[in-house]
Amino acid sequence: MPLLSRRETLTGLGALALGGCSPQPRPGSEPLVSILRAPGYTQDLYDSVRRLLLEHRLDVRGKRILLKPNLVEFDPSTTINTHVLLVHAALEAFRSLGASAVQIAEGPGHRRLTLDLADAAGYFETIPGFEGVFTDLNLDEVRQVKLARPFSKLRSLFLPQTALACDLLVSMPKMKTHHWVGATLAMKNLFGLVPGAVYGWPKNILHWAGIHECIADLHRTFPSHFSIVDGIVGMEGNGPVQGTPKPAGVIVAGRDPAAVDATCCRIMGLDPAKIHYLKLAETRDQTREECVRQIGEAIAGVRTPFDLIPQLRWVGAS
């Protein structure tokens, strides 16, 4: 278990002084999270994703949208990558809602052959003109960004211009267990924004600076954010690379990534309060179920406990 930092200690003492509870959110101001049942990767996804965006009243007219899926490995038979059909459905939905531009971008962490990887994952075949809408974030133009009040040891990061310039970043992760941090969802997916051409493959400097803390730093750096999690078939066991497929049959979405991730954790049978990066990013108790306004399916109705390797059992819900 990580030792408490000075920041965490002070935050904890502050909470205790307030009676161990944050002020109750104003009714109706809680983060909204949708759980949508989706039994498979079918053409129905196009309509489902559009309805989902309407449900969240996203005004994207004239805005530049950046879809950030999770591309990791070549093998199309695994469930390691965000499914291309969901990404294409999101692209079409944002276009139909009046976005001025919808781009797809990713910077894989281990493999540097991003376009070849996207090709193998079916992106070229499924998305017309894919190369014209895709940016390899590992090789994009970069700008140094100072991290405001960083949680990690980093004081600044070089980040891709494409991600910095968009109006709305849409994190589209695969719902997976993660052997270092518990779960990889909307927030952890932001590691793919960090350019490999600067930091390498893997982006190991983030590990040395504190994985959880870097996730929280990236989350804070990209506040204009929407999340659509591919939990139709997720990955359990030794994720995020070597796990096994786990059909959960859901898409989870919302504007607050911490709330979305916490909801995903509950679906996966994980305790979000035990995931350190979620606690770091929490600003209004989003990891507590009662502080999230859930729409669509109820968590109990879609709960699908993910198998955990022994080293990850600490994150399981008791």
Partner: peptide
């Protein structure tokens, strides 16, 4: 050798 100073060693670098 690491990709970036301060990190661990990896195969490519």
């Amino acid at each position: 050798w690491p990709w970036f100073p301060g990190a661990a060693s990896w195969i490519a670098p």
